[in-house]
Design a protein around this nucleic acid. Structure first.
Lengths: 243, 243
DNA sequence: GTCTATAATTGGATAGAC
DNA sequence: GTCTATCCAATTATAGAC
């Protein structure tokens, strides 16, 4: 349940600008007197709040969750929470930001020198581990996408699509060199995401139908195996297919 | 944009029980004096409201949408809307119910006599057509799942899981008879859903990365082709694989 | 940094005229 | 069936003491 400390935090003072904005005043860049603040142990509380927020936002969304609930779950008072995060939306965005980075990590591994079969099998396993261990992260990401990613659109267009563009080039290279069957790289990436994230996002449905979820060790391995075979024996050149 | 008329509607009078319930009174089954009411043209309005509700709920969820917004979009007053649907939650559930049926339809087609390759290829296309033509339906369904399907759980356990159980038997039969590679039926079903619904639920992401969505005719065909090949050439016996 | 009010607003739902 | 005018509960956010 422990979450890594926020990378791009701000001191509470820096953050407290929303009220002023809404009141019509311009945000004054007035160089704050004590800029060089170090994280210290108050970072802990921020993390606890962020973890609690993730748990709730990922189930009920931004509007389905009240700051009161988050505060209760993080075991702080509501006003104390609002000391650390100027308002609800900022809290939500903070959670999302922390997420995106975790989210893209597994994809960075791909490179043209690797054996595609190994690389893709490994990627599937890593993504399924995330679906198992951080299903809330997966759900929140999904929620945000469904809503049109209003708060993540910029990052989507920049970070994510450039990363995918680079990795698609790797896949295309695998295809050109004959190590993969012809496949449109984008569709393969979408397919990998869909197949792995589904087990987190639709966990209730999986539970209702299969009677188990990824939390069950045997079911987890069964899932890894099935998804890998589905994808690989579909995209690998026939020679590599066992039987 | 037109939606089919509701199948299992109730007359407004029958429906107006929530307030009484909340006030602590038992819902009285008092035989309403004019039970045999026919739909007439007021059904139109219900449909318009349901369509508007689907559009908004599927983006912003139950809590992210106000009845005011739905009313505005359906071009009726808020109180008029509340004449047709006793309260917000009932409206939401009505939308969901209409959906589930549409949702399961394509799956009913499967039967053991069919050629698995044809059956599955056809299923993929039908599901992608739905993702293209009714992305909002797909999104709402996804939203509901993520939240743990509090309002659909019963139907999930009954209707959906029994249907899937039957169709899994068909898949298992295909495997036994050697017409499909060994695959765990449930995982194949999950995979088919994941691969096809992804293009509706994550349309923004698809747009950000591929620059197009299923609305683009060429991209649609490209998608059908890629998903079909991914799945089929993975689960069909090698002999059936062209190259 | 943390707390106890409380201000301010939104939004679901009802009453009652027409 | 439809409207206007409210009521009322839930929540976000702020003020100000400690």
């Amino acid at each position: 349940m422990a979450r890594p400390p926020a990378a791009n935090r701000k001191t509470p003072a820096e953050v407290r600008t929303r009220a002023a904005e809404r009141a019509g005043k311009k945000t004054v860049p007035a160089a704050s007197p004590r800029v060089a603040r170090r994280p210290r142990q108050a970072e802990d509380k921020r993390s606890v709040i962020l973890a609690a927020a993730l748990g709730l936002f990922s189930r009920f969304g931004l509007h389905g969750t009240s700051v009161d609930q988050v505060a209760a779950r993080a075991d702080v008072s509501k006003s104390n929470l609002l000391y650390y995060f100027a308002n609800k939306e900022e809290l939500y965005v903070s959670v999302l930001r922390e997420l995106l980075h975790v989210w893209l990590e597994p994809l960075r591994g791909f490179s043209a020198e690797q054996d595609p079969r190994e690389a893709i099998a490994g990627y599937i396993r890593r993504k399924l581990v995330i679906s198992r261990d951080r299903p809330d992260a997966s759900r929140l990401f999904c929620l945000e996408m469904i809503q049109g990613a209003p708060l993540l659109r910029d990052e989507l267009d920049r970070e994510l699509s450039t990363l995918v563009a680079r990795k698609s080039e790797v896949i295309a290279e695998w295809v050109r060199s004959g190590r993969l069957r012809p496949v449109a790289p984008h569709h393969l990436v979408f397919g990998l995401w869909a197949l792995t994230q589904h087990y987190a996002d639709f966990a209730v449905q999986v539970q209702a139908i299969a009677g188990r979820t990824l939390q069950d060790a045997a079911f987890f391995e069964e899932t890894v195996d099935n998804v890998q075979r589905l994808v690989l024996d579909g995209i690998c050149v026939p020679a590599a297919v066992p039987a």
